[in-house]
Design a protein around this nucleic acid. Structure first.
Lengths: 162, 162
DNA sequence: TCGAGAAACATGACCCGTCAACTAATTGCC
DNA sequence: GGCAATTAGTTGACGGGTCATGTTTCTCGA
């Protein structure tokens, strides 16, 4: 129990459900978007673009904000472009970067898919918790994120300033 | 804000990190096992078998306890059998079920891989939280699991008795 | 008892993500 | 200015998961 090589009983009781959730949550997130022809990651990409100024972002920033690798985002962006939901273009000031822009169709698709996604999130997460519990959960998860990936978009301004 | 079709500000603050974690955690779980030639799901399968009586379980029960679909588990079991880490056999009393048994090699592989996995979990999760926070997190996540998948292995005895 | 339906797996096609190259553009440095 | 190192993206091969379908075995009722 005191052996740091193993998890304590309390840690196991916290870890098991978290592992189960990590295995289950992805499918729960894909499910409501599936009927709209979107992956959760594709949905995340569209959300990031919709929030960006001019609905445009460089590929790298898009990857960073959407939480995917550059390769994954590039593949995804190519497929979304083939379906007309976004558009890629060369950055005029830096020939290396690809600018990704949300199209009108892309925005429509996002607006169409959002309600069922929100409904699913609400039903999956918040129906099971009180507001206080949800806030606690958010704080703890943020602490984990900050710890394992300090450079993520959830980083505080102070961290990013470095 | 009061519109139930959208998430409240507080809910968004809880949801965003959770979504980010759902996107990030899988890769963090795969990483330490990769050098041992195991997927996180394969690892979970081996863990379930190691805990089972006679290190054997029917395919369906294995899928249920490991948190995967039957198809996923079947594919995974076939590949693990090809690598000699487990063995499939026909159940003598019911010809439909496939019994899956952990081999000696499989157990060795599991024992070899476990420490780095545990270390990773500890570093990813528990180094960022106090014991009390970890316990809270566990309770909240369990509440979510119970709510979205009441038939899972985390269900209480009372639920399963129905 | 026998035949329809259900249960338990297996399988193959397809899609997605990763990893490892590779290309192209830019920056830095001497 | 020119060349090496860095940055940004792309691409293709490969492996794993899902979905739909097929197969075998069992159950249950008439």
């Amino acid at each position: 129990m005191a052996d740091p090589k193993w998890l304590s009983k309390n840690e196991i009781e916290a870890w098991r459900p978290l592992a189960a959730l990590a295995l289950l949550l992805p499918s729960r997130l894909e499910e409501p978007l599936q009927s709209h022809g979107l992956t959760f990651f594709e949905y995340s990409v569209l959300v990031v673009l919709a929030d960006a100024t001019d609905r445009t972002a460089p590929m790298s920033e898009l990857a960073h904000l959407a939480g995917g690798s550059l390769s994954r985002t590039s593949h995804s962006a190519r497929r979304l472009e083939e379906r007309g939901l976004l558009q890629r273009s060369r950055c005029p000031t830096d020939g290396r970067v690809t600018l990704v822009t949300l199209t009108g169709d892309g925005h429509e698709r996002l607006v169409a898919a959002a309600p069922s996604h929100v409904e699913s999130v609400r039903h999956s997460i918040f129906d099971a918790l009180t507001p206080d519990e949800a806030a606690e959960l958010g704080r703890h998860v943020t602490a984990i994120l900050t710890h394992i990936a300090p450079t993520g978009p959830w980083a505080s301004e102070a961290d990013r300033a470095s």
